[in-house]
Design a binder for these strands. Structure first.
Length: 642
RNA sequence: GCUGUUGUAGCUCAGGGGUAGAGCACUUCCUUGGUAAGGAAGAGGUCGUGAGUUCAAAUCUCAUCAACAGCUCCA
């Protein structure tokens, strides 16, 4: 007999070799029906796998992450079975579960799969799911496995096998499909009730662009149709938040083919948001001791050779323009220009920290496939600054930048983000990262310590650092789930020396400063793209391009409306009158669609009482208030940025 | 950059080898209406661009540009 311990601490005795499914059945039939896999001693197992020793067992249902991932992984096998039956000779690479669903990478030879084919594959999967075939596990020797795939001529699975140890190799079979797989799987295909293949795209084998491109099919499955329907509705909702759609509807920005891909044109409404953000940044930076500078958009090649950017990033800079034998580049970053400002004057330790700030315009020739609305562009306006400081000052300065992040995030109500300590990859020293292993470790430790001292939660990721040093990136997700770096705070141990930047220290010796590169508001492009989605277009009053729309009931109230407009403008409130000869219902509808925070409805009644009927966007009629009271409310709300 | 898909009016989209359609938006007129669409008339497109096939191309073929999805990349 063996002892099984459950998460609530209960212990029961069972015969050796019992399966989790049998244990579940011994507890209740209902439980047995709802479980997908079991966590046995912390490892996820098939329910049909025999347990040979004392163990802790936790049953995994659909609501558990482990349950979902097992369900989706099994769904990937079902997809492969369907594809294999329809496209004989197809070879498979890997088919993992992902955050929402699963994919399977495959080599179809010279065949292609279109969106229309996906529906057919989906149908086939539904058919196969109904057969309710069991997923059966088989331990197999490496030799047998190699023979199996050699016979099949499957170089992909053979490649996978190379890295597997004999004695730990398993095959899983369901219906007509057998796959090399570590598992685990759900008991049988019948549990997969709702299936949606969400896309087909190319994906490089092993994620390396030098390798062959495989076909990747994405899908998502659910244990019932209702959850699938809800998921599809959620996707539709997310699309409505997409900044590309909102940006067009609200007149924020446009991208014109003739101007160029990735070169957004900021329309009047978008420009207002830019100006408000800059006002905020300038006041915060002034308070935090920054000094503002302005630098040109181009520079000679020499500058980027000195900084070291050119060898790393030439491919993603606009090509040089050559004048009288001298090459000039559009700047892709502001740091070298700022370094030259540091170098322009003699510096003493008494001048440090020196903080130079600029909303700098940069141009980056991003790969065409990378462009994405405002989130990834070729012309960007960066909330940039460089802090030149001593090693002793570093921790305080770096932390002050983090505090600035948090101050901004509070204003914007940004809560869903991850702080990422981006480290170098030792394997790519000299290639992607400056070859200074000790300086890397030292500065990484410095940054880590600042974060720990400040008690700010963060994750560490290797291979995400800048070429000149580690950084703290703030990762956010777009409406459709893409990850972006919103803000960044970087250490640079390299450029100070490359530019021969020095200050005179207390001992009258020249010393190289550490440099912090930081962009708490990222770029206008990405930040406003993010804000559009974050607020779903419903900007807080202080940011709203039009803060008040005055809606006269009829032309008879137009003079009163004009007076109100004048007074609002005197209060620096952005307001407009809807002068069209439309009914009030139409005017309200259009103002609501434009997501204008306040509507001031004025008719004869209001005019005689010097009042306004206030309507709040998304809320509705707030009743009549005196004009003065309305102005005060708005001024307060703008000032408090709520 | 790679793989796939798409490109028709300002926007959303239908159509499809015989020379272009809807709704919304726009313009004008009527209407002066009290909290999410009042009515009528009108204007607007060489169907992304270039070439080829054809008596005839917006429609078929090729190239090219751009957008979209994913991959790769991101100072």
């Amino acid at each position: 007999m063996i002892h099984i311990t459950f998460p609530d601490g209960a212990r029961r005795e069972y015969p050796e070799g019992i399966t989790s499914m049998e244990i579940a059945k011994s507890i209740s039939e209902g439980l047995a029906r709802n479980i997908l896999a079991a966590e046995v001693n912390g490892e996820i197992w098939d329910l049909s796998r025999a347990i040979g020793t004392d163990a802790t067992v936790k049953f995994l249902k659909w609501d558990d992450d482990g349950g979902k991932s097992t369900f989706w992984h099994s769904s990937a096998h079902l997809l492969a079975e369907a594809v294999e039956s329809m496209y004989p000779g197809v070879k498979f690479w890997v088919g993992p579960p992902i955050e929402k669903g699963f994919y399977y990478d495959m080599d179809l030879g010279d065949r292609t799969i279109s969106e229309a084919d996906l529906e057919k594959i989906e149908q086939k999967m539904k058919e196969l799911a109904k057969q309710n075939n069991s997923y059966t596990r088989k331990e197999i020797s490496k030799k047998e496995a190699v023979e199996y795939f050699e016979k099949k001529g499957d170089e992909y699975k053979l490649d996978l096998l190379q890295n597997l140890e004999d004695g730990h190799i398993t095959f899983y079979t369901q219906g007509q499909f057998t796959d090399l797989c570590r598992g685990p799987h759900i008991p049988s295909t019948g549990a997969i009730k709702a299936i949606k293949l969400t896309g087909v795209a190319g994906a490089y084998w092993k994620g390396d662009e030098k390798n062959k491109m495989l076909t990747r099919i994405y899908g998502v499955t659910f244990p019932n149709q209702k959850e699938l329907d809800e998921y599809l509705i959620m996707l539709e909702e997310a699309k409505k938040r997409d900044h590309r759609k909102l940006g067009k509807e609200l007149g924020i920005f446009t991208i014109d083919e003739e101007v160029g891909p990735g070169l957004p044109l900021w329309m009047p409404n978008g420009t207002i948001i830019i100006e408000e953000l800059e006002k905020l940044a300038k006041s915060f930076e002034l308070e935090a001791g920054y000094k503002r500078v302005v630098t040109p958009h181009i520079a000679k090649e020499k500058l980027y050779l000195t900084s070291g950017h050119l060898p790393y990033y030439q491919d993603s800079m606009y090509p040089a323009m050559e004048l009288d034998g001298v090459k000039y580049y559009l700047k892709a970053m502001n740091c070298p220009h700022h370094h030259k400002i540091f170098a322009a004057e003699q510096r003493s330790y008494k001048d440090l920290p020196l903080r130079l700030a600029e909303y700098g315009t940069c141009y980056r020739y991003e790969q065409s496939g990378e462009l994405f609305g405002l989130m990834r562009v070729r012309c960007l306006h960066m909330n940039d600054a460089h802090i030149y400081c001593t090693r002793e000052q570093f921790a305080q300065e770096f932390r002050a930048v983090n505090d600035l992040y948090l101050k901004y995030f509070k204003i914007f109500g940004i809560e869903k983000y991850v702080m990422r300590l981006s480290l170098h990859d030792p394997a790519k020293l000299g290639e992607k990262y400056i070859n200074e292993p000790e300086l890397w470790l030292e500065t990484e430790a410095m940054v880590r310590q600042v974060m720990l001292d400040a008690e700010i939660p963060f994750v560490e990721v290797k291979g995400e650092g800048a070429f000149y040093g580690p950084k703290i990136d703030v990762q956010i997700w777009s409406a459709i789930g893409r990850e972006f770096t919103l803000a960044t705070n970087q250490v640079d141990f390299a450029q100070g020396r490359r530019f021969n930047l020095t200050f005179t220290n207390q001992h009258n010796e020249p010393e190289i400063p550490l440099i912090i590169h930081r962009a708490p508001l990222g770029t206008h492009e990405r930040f406003i793209g993010f804000l559009l989605e974050h607020y779903a277009g419903n900007f807080p009053l202080w940011l709203a391009p039009v803060q008040v729309k005055i809606l006269p009931i009829s032309d008879k109230s137009m003079d009163y409306a004009q007076n109100i407009l004048k007074e609002l403008k005197n209060c620096d409130i952005r307001a407009e009158i809807d002068e069209r000869s439309e009914k009030i219902g139409k005017k309200i509808r259009d103002a609501e669609l434009m997501k204008i925070p306040y509507m001031a409805i004025v008719g004869e009644k209001e005019a005689t009482e010097n009042k306004l009927s206030v309507r709040r966007h998304g809320v509705g009629d707030k009743g009549a208030v005196s004009a003065d009271e309305f102005f005060e409310t708005l001024k307060k709300e703008i000032k408090e940025k709520i």
